[in-house]
Design a protein around this nucleic acid. Structure first.
Length: 198
DNA sequence: CGTGCGATTATCT
DNA sequence: GATAATCGCACGC
């Protein structure tokens, strides 16, 4: 799975007219990872994470954000990669009709899919997308190959937003992103954001 | 420019 | 009934 995560960088997600190039991902193991939804075993929600690789796991975060994971490993082994950010490369008008609705000022282009919740909104995800086969041409949500980034531009660091007393974020440095991408540059690359240097 | 908090609901105990 | 893999805005300096 840790081998698959960086390979997702640069690939393209497609939902209807919208296409998003992935620039940031985060890996989650299954029962041995306290930060994973699969940590407590199989439930109705997490069942797809125990299914075959190449399917989508979509969940609702904080009651309002739909976040997308790509299931890795084979049936019986829970592992997934959370897609944290990307850049809109097609269908921008469809994205703006959702993202800019009821807002006084439009988003900057790089903000349209920066962050897991925003990316889910950009793609128009719903819980109905959970379990979709990303490799099936008839699926509403697909994963296409894109130009891979330069291997030298790939960075790795602590995960974001993982709760737990032991600091699981630093225990598993499983966040991967493309250095120099505008859609990730503001996302505390390398871990904690520093204040101005002394 | 940095920090703090409210929104809103599926899911699990 | 509590919790959560977040976001956007308000406010204080």
């Amino acid at each position: 799975m840790l081998e698959v995560a960086p390979l997702l960088l640069g690939s393209v997600l497609q939902a209807g007219p919208v296409r998003v190039r992935v620039t940031e991902v985060e890996a989650y193991a299954g029962v041995q990872d306290p930060g994973s939804h699969a940590y407590r075993g199989v439930t109705a929600r997490t069942a797809v994470m125990f299914g075959p690789a190449g399917h989508a796991y979509v969940y609702l975060s904080y009651g309002m954000h739909h976040c997308l994971n790509v299931v890795c490993e084979d049936t019986g082994v829970a592992a997934a990669v959370l897609v944290r950010a990307g850049e809109v490369v097609a269908g921008e008008s469809s994205v703006r009709s959702r993202r800019d609705a009821g807002r006084s000022r439009p988003h900057r282009w790089v903000d349209l899919a920066r962050g897991p919740g925003r990316l889910g909104s950009a793609l128009g995800l719903t819980l109905g997308h959970s379990g979709a086969d990303l490799c099936d041409p008839s699926s509403p949500l697909r994963l296409l190959r894109g130009a891979p980034p330069s291997p030298a531009a790939i960075r790795r660091g602590p995960r974001v937003g993982v709760s737990g007393p032991g600091g699981e974020a630093t225990a598993y440095p499983w966040r991967f992103w493309i250095e120099g991408e505008a859609s990730v540059s503001a996302y505390r690359p390398g871990g904690v954001r520093r204040r101005a240097a002394p």
